[in-house]
Design a protein around this nucleic acid. Structure first.
Length: 283
DNA sequence: AAACAAACCTGTGCGC
DNA sequence: TGCGCACAGGTTTGTT
């Protein structure tokens, strides 16, 4: 569910409300959430530490601790990170609870990791051994926002091999953070079909794709991300984003294209994912 | 090397 | 109303 703009929104909330706080106590309600290590490793790794920063790389949240370790959180399909008052009733599927010390306002809070589908993960790792302990994080490609993906870098990526654009945009080893919604929205904004071949684009098309990646992700971050009807994605305080109102193709199969006003949005399957595009705008 | 297929889970919406 | 199926924002692993 959450892609770069949603994870970035959560990151900003953590930066503002959680960084600088000490974790007093940790509860693990479901072992699967901490399966990469163990409940003991996460409890021991977090208890008594201060969260020093809130970083993001692709869809991964990375929170350095004053112990020298780092907390990694991945939301996968249905994970949520929420801040609540101490003792507040917990929603179903609350798998990890971190009790924080009092903030500047003296309020006591809990940090919750909630995740119905249990694909999400919470890990404490040693950043010096990231390659072994979190190989997926270590293998991440360029983050369009954090690394300020340049046109030159993107052209290198596109021309190195012949790849379908949709699977290429979804490949976290190449570009980190774009998921199914934003891949479709980016390709529509770039006026390129999802099944175009990456090393067969004109310079004009490459420029459009570069511009679209930045424009769509920036606008989505500014809107606080996309919250679909099931409201699975919400920010730290349970509020949804509004970028779903700006979607031009995602989830709009059968509707007339709002950009050209002529084409009809089609749905196909690419990279085993539901893929939406306007056959008239996108070529 | 890249694309495909299946797997990991739970919840929801739809057709019958 | 109830049942069964399809489908969902992600990533990994194994197979073509």
């Amino acid at each position: 569910m959450p892609e770069l703009p949603e994870v970035e929104t959560v990151r900003r909330g953590l930066e503002r409300h959680v960084v600088g706080r000490r974790i007093r106590r940790v509860e693990i309600g479901r072992e699967r959430t901490v399966r990469r290590t163990s409940p003991e490793a996460v409890i021991h790794g977090l208890t008594g530490t201060v969260i020093e920063a809130a970083n993001r790389r692709g869809k991964y949240l990375l929170l350095p601790l004053d112990s020298g370790d780092e907390l990694m959180i991945h939301l996968r399909m249905s994970g949520q990170v929420l801040v609540a008052e101490e003792g507040a009733p917990r929603p179903p599927h609350t798998h990890v609870v971190a009790h924080l010390d009092a903030g500047v306002d003296g309020g006591r809070h809990e940090l919750w990791f909630v995740d119905p589908r249990t694909f999400g993960e919470v890990v404490v790792f040693d950043p010096e051994r990231a390659a072994e302990q979190v190989p997926d994080v270590h293998a991440l490609g360029l983050d369009p926002i954090v690394d300020d993906l340049s046109l030159r870098a993107l052209r290198g990526i596109l021309r190195t091999r012949a790849r379908l654009l949709k699977p290429l945009l979804l490949d976290q080893h190449v570009i980190a953070g774009i998921g199914n919604i934003y891949a479709d929205e980016i390709l529509h904004a770039a006026r390129l079909r999802p099944d175009r071949i990456s090393n067969d684009l004109s310079l004009t098309s490459e420029r459009r794709l570069h511009g679209a990646i930045h424009d769509v992700l920036r606008a989505a971050i500014d809107a606080g991300g996309s919250t679909l009807v099931d409201a699975q994605y919400v920010d730290l305080f349970g509020d949804g984003g509004s970028y779903q109102d700006e979607h031009r193709v995602y989830g709009r199969a059968g509707e007339r294209c709002s950009t050209c006003g002529v084409g009809w949005i089609r749905r196909m399957v690419s990279a085993q994912r539901s893929t939406h595009f306007c056959p008239r705008c996108q070529r």
